[in-house]
Design a protein around this nucleic acid. Structure first.
Lengths: 238, 238
DNA sequence: ATATGCGATAATTTCGAAATAATAAGAACA
DNA sequence: TGTTCTTATTATTTCGAAATTATCGCATAT
């Protein structure tokens, strides 16, 4: 039984040290990957078995996720997975543009060689994978991972724990929309050079160009998602 | 016994519907007002009695507060109140400048008459209180409340749930520093016209001026706080 | 002296049962 | 038929005991 990730033999690879933290991470991933569908009611009895934890521990994780806007708390009527909507995606995208630009700007002002080399290496890993995947499959978990690492590398020198955390939160929320979009895409995703262009602008210290590109990138993704339709994964409205 | 706020007869004024939510709010306020001091270890056994809840409920609240950066989780070694530092204050201030400006900008682009009248009324309430307090006491809880309401009113029309939530979080963190600063201030706080100037710029649709003023306001507060010294409320370092 | 290992103590984390609140189903009434 | 109580059922929230993990003190060895 247990949950997808791996059989959990207590105290083995507990992501954050505690079981509560581990469940938090697993739940977050399951929501982002839409194993738990948008709007879906989260029943304790069932989840308890699936994730192999008790009421309290489960509740702690759900409570935290609700503060990350991946879960919605319904008074004393439990929790459900945060619904998706084009309004939410639009709002999220605006916030992301603001934050990603600021983080990237700060990183470009501060970044050292190590920062640059990490950008280079994460880009190449992503690029290599995209070539292998050329024209074929949808967004794989591996792509998602490398894509996240590339963007993380870009802002890795922003030197602001507060902004970095905000960025992470927004990025995670957008990952879910990306996955949804990939699930319903009809035509295989065209490989673009956006990431390469961003990388080049950043490594050549062209701040203005980098700002323009990162904004376009964030907005284009949202645009793609909306065009691919959002009403997917209907899940009986609550 | 129970905790400061009020005697809680179950299901009477539970802020968020659940007891867990209520404890969350009470803890947050106690941290911001430094009843729980920066860096202080939070022991379950004691807190359990003070707040009148069980281990699990308490843990849920602490876990959420740690995601708000008001509490720090120490692996499987419990929780402590987030320490204060000038680095943290600086980081926080930078983020606040970015977010407050964006929220205010958006509000000014969108705000209607109701928005403006709320700004006016919250300003007057704040102003009246400041006149009564003229030269005498430190930052009172009432001032803190009205001050928060004025700033909230300013951005009340920003029409972005995501940005609004981010702003709230940052504002709460800064409230704590403000309280700390007030506690150690030697000279009574001089009443400034900053709030009036901001209000006037906003109500007269002078975007550029409003942006300049709000940035200066946020930075000035941080500046004051640092000048008043921060090493207060030492609390044996962990 | 300093370091290492062991046992006892104290703290946190986790569990599952008990209490509480919401929902559904049915009965009584207009 | 529709409405409003009441009761039964289901789900969530909360508690406090039990398990786990960290910490402290002391003995032993280097």
């Amino acid at each position: 039984m247990k949950n997808g990730s791996e059989g959990n033999l207590r105290s083995q690879s507990l992501v954050g040290g505690t079981l509560a933290n581990d469940v938090l991470h697993r739940l977050r991933e399951d929501i982002i990957s839409c194993i738990l569908k948008p709007g879906e009611k989260l029943r304790f009895e069932a989840m308890k078995d699936i994730y192999g934890v008790s009421f309290s521990t489960l509740r702690e994780a759900l409570s935290r996720l609700s503060s990350e806007r991946l879960v919605v708390s319904e008074g004393q009527r439990g929790f459900k997975v945060a619904p998706i909507s084009s309004e939410d995606l639009g709002d999220l995208t605006n916030a992301r543009v603001l934050i990603e630009k600021e983080c990237l700007l700060r990183a470009m002002e501060r970044g050292d060689d190590e920062w640059k080399s990490r950008i280079l290496s994460t880009f190449h890993r992503l690029d290599r994978l995209e070539n292998e995947l050329e024209g074929q499959r949808r967004v794989t978990p591996e792509w998602d991972q490398l894509h996240a690492e590339f963007h993380e590398a870009l802002v890795g020198a922003s030197a602001s724990p507060t902004l970095a955390e905000i960025r992470d939160r927004l990025f995670e929320r957008s990952r879910r929309y990306r996955r949804i979009s990939a699930m319903v895409r009809k035509t295989p995703r065209a490989k673009t050079d956006e990431h390469r262009m961003i990388m080049e602008a950043v490594l050549s210290n062209d701040v203005d160009h980098a700002m323009t590109l990162i904004e376009r990138h964030v907005r284009e993704i949202a645009q793609n998602i909306m065009e691919n339709g959002l009403e997917v994964t209907p899940v009986q409205a609550a």
